[in-house]
């Protein structure tokens, strides 16, 4: 069972205090979007083996959504950052690249 640190309240809590929210940094496509763009937004996911960027909500705590860079193989948590960031913070990115030097975000 994972241990995650909420970047909003700083509490390291167990997985049962969070709710998962799927892949992070999806770009929403609304009315006027092409079928391809909308399909990508609604249905297509990266499902990476290795570092993934994903959404979590601290549902039993402060209620805030945040994003995590986590390794889907080793389960290492490279870092967490607020959901309002468009990219992982430099610190989180550096932490991922320390383990995966050629890593580039899925965004």
């Amino acid at each position: 069972m994972l241990l995650l640190t909420c970047p909003h309240c700083g509490i390291a809590a167990e997985e049962t205090e969070f709710n998962p929210g799927g892949e992070a940094h999806l770009k929403r496509h609304g009315p006027g979007a092409s079928d391809e763009d909308f399909e990508g937004y609604l249905f297509l996911r990266h499902n990476v083996k290795g570092p993934v960027l994903e959404r979590w909500r601290h549902s039993y705590g402060c209620g805030k959504w945040f994003l995590a860079a986590r390794d889907s193989v080793t389960l290492q948590v490279y870092g967490t950052y607020p959901a309002s960031l468009a990219h992982p913070s430099d610190e989180v990115g550096d932490s991922v690249r320390a383990a995966h030097p050629n890593w580039r975000t899925q965004i």
Binding site: G21, R55, R57, S59, G63, K64, W65, A83, S84
Partner: peptide, 10 residues
Amino acid sequence: GHMEDWLQCE
């Protein structure tokens, strides 16, 4: 939760 998701993330 749905409302907060859109408010916090989008």
